[in-house]
Write a protein that binds this DNA or RNA. Structure first.
Length: 569
DNA sequence: GCCGTTTTCGGCCCGACTGTTTTCAGTCG
């Protein structure tokens, strides 16, 4: 995949054009960079097919530049800009308080090109000698340098959700607020989170902001005014806080939930009617408020159905929500409460931490009606995967356990290994005895696209395989997804009736949301699996639901929203 | 440079905060 390279170059061009003060073009390049980066299609495939200029935000000129990058690995236009501005703009603008204009100023005045240059200049006290920059800017840059140097990892969604919910709970306990809610990308369920946004309604903003600033987690105040404050927590996470009047809460919640692209689309819609949309509300041409108290009212005033946060990425949701438009409608997204069971659960018979009984108790406590025990096979000898005899013994144990359970059922199952050639590591006659057969790739992730595609097609086409687990094998921030022709794999699975797992483990979330959407469009069934290795891991299921929702999936597409009578066939 | 219920030209999201300014530019979200 060359998407990352293309996106990086386009994004750098945007920064360099910003530095030059060019209007509008930076936005065009930035949009194109985001579109390429978030596309699950390899850009080189699109270029080969001549369809890359059909991506939204990519026109003739950027299309040509993308083709040049794909074919040569570089871009003359980009090289020329870099020659003109031989500075590490990406690194410099990562420093808080330094944008393209300040970078240009520093380069022209005192020759700052790199982060090292910037640090030396700041330590030597040369920054405040530049006209337009003062002592405070110099101090801010010195401070910002430390942060830029630190490894600024993004949080995984699971950690971000917990943190956001904890902070909201603490603020509520102060009794100072009429409403408190987190917004931002965590509310949209993005798989990684950069920082948190919290909104509050209070008739008296000053003590409200003060309460936020004195939360025990806060170690540094980055900025604060009458209604807005930014802090850094002990774990390095930045949190932005806003107090808004009650009549603006819906508009603010919408605005700060984003995404930016979604907000721009809404503003354009408002602008087309001569209205204005900002974080305080929707206003007509005479500045009279039309909506803003709640989100649904805001969308309604714009002629839209309410759009769930998970869909707000400007990937067709605004058009689908438009009541006056034909074509695709908004889906009725699957909800956590729709889940009846979990089809991917491990025990201490392989690499899980708890016996079947403990896993059953935890699942019941969370309102589930059934689970499938799907331990590993022998391939994973180190973790004690099950042999053929082990499978037989587990089937007996589960059969006996079910006799003692009321209102809950344990399905027999296995997580069988998909070997390099697509064959499975358990005999068909054993697989045939099990209620649920999960197939999964655990090695040889770097096979060629053709090999991996053939391997997965063979696996999903196997008569006994019910679910392909963590289909791409990616681990967020650790291991990239494997390369396969997903359309071909989806088509084979749809034909065979095999479901794709949305693995809800925080570091997997695999399928990812964009592949979920493609799988649904291809007519595939899905299964949200916790891949629980311990009782508390059933809490991951909500991440799987969020990912399914981001992929536009309805309950009807998810196998484990069904009652067992229909599933256990 | 992209795009179209504004449709091949003329728009392109908007406000808070900060710092260095005397009225605003830059940055950030």
């Amino acid at each position: 995949m060359k998407n990352e390279l293309v996106a990086r170059i386009l994004s750098e061009i945007a920064d360099l054009l910003d530095l030059e003060g060019v209007a509008f073009k930076p936005r065009a390049y930035r949009r194109a960079a985001e579109v390429v980066a978030s596309s699950s299609e390899p850009i080189e495939e699109l270029v080969a097919g001549g369809t890359h200029a059909e991506l939204p935000g990519v026109g003739e000129a950027i299309g040509r530049k993308i083709a040049e990058i794909v074919e040569t690995g570089r871009l003359k236009y980009h090289d020329d800009l870099l020659a003109k501005w031989p500075i590490d703009l990406a690194a410099l603008t990562r420093v808080d308080g330094v944008g393209p204009k300040t970078a240009k100023l520093l380069y022209e005045a005192i020759g700052v090109r790199t982060l090292d240059d910037l640090e030396q200049a700041a330590r030597a006290g040369r920054i405040h000698t530049v006209k337009g920059l003062g002592e405070k800017t110099e101090a801010k840059i010195l401070h910002g340098l430390e942060e830029a140097r630190a490894v600024e990892g993004r949080m995984l969604l699971f950690a971000a959700l917990r943190l956001a919910e904890d902070l909201v709970a603490e603020l509520r306990e102060t009794g100072l607020f009429e409403r408190v809610q987190f917004a931002g990308s965590v509310r949209r369920g993005r798989e990684t989170i950069g920082d948190l946004d919290i909104l509050a309604v209070s008739s008296d903003p000053a003590p409200a902001v003060a309460a936020f600033l004195t939360l025990p987690e806060v170690v540094e105040i980055l900025s604060h005014g009458e209604t807005k404050a930014s802090v850094r927590l002990g774990n390095g996470v930045q949190v932005d806080f806003r107090v808004v009047p009650a009549e603006s809460f819906g508009a603010a919640l919408q605005y700060f939930t984003g995404s930016k692209a979604h907000n721009i689309a809404l503003r354009r819609l408002a602008g087309a009617r001569g209205w204005k949309l900002n974080e305080y509300g929707l206003y007509d041409a005479d500045d009279r408020p039309l909506a803003g108290v709640d989100e649904d009212g805001l969308y309604g005033a714009l002629g839209l159905q309410p759009i769930p946060p998970e869909l707000r990425e400007d990937t067709g949701e605004v058009e689908a929500a438009d009541r006056g438009r034909k074509g695709r409608r908004l889906p009725h997204l699957v909800q956590v409460g729709d889940l009846r069971g979990d089809l991917h659960v491990h025990t201490n018979a392989s690499d899980g931490l708890a016996p079947i009984a403990d896993m059953v108790a935890a699942a019941r406590a969370r309102g589930l009606k059934y689970i499938a025990i799907t331990d590993h096979t022998r391939f994973a000898e180190i973790i004690g995967g099950l042999s053929a005899d082990g499978v037989a013994a587990q089937i007996d144990a589960i059969t006996n356990l079910n006799k003692t359970l009321r209102g809950f059922h344990v399905l027999t199952g296995i997580e069988v290994n998909v070997q390099a050639d697509g064959s499975l590591d358990l005999a068909d006659e054993i697989l045939a005895q099990l209620d649920v057969v999960i197939a999964a790739v655990h090695s040889h992730f770097r096979q060629s696209r053709a090999e991996m595609t053939a391997r997965l097609v063979r696996a999903v086409s196997h008569e006994h395989v019910d679910i392909l687990a963590h289909p791409t094998g990616r681990k967020i921030g650790e291991r990239p997804p494997c390369d396969a022709d997903w359309d071909a794999v989806f088509a084979a699975a749809a034909k065979a009736g095999t479901a794709f797992e949305i693995n809800a483990n925080p570091i997997r979330l695999d399928l990812s949301a964009d592949l979920v959407r493609r799988a649904v469009d291809a007519g595939c069934r899905l299964a949200i699996g916790s891949d629980a290795h311990a009782p508390e891991h059933f809490d991951f299921l909500r991440l799987g639901v969020l990912t399914a929702r981001r992929g536009w999936a309805e309950a009807g597409s998810i196998a484990n929203t069904r009652d067992l009578a229909r599933e256990d066939t």
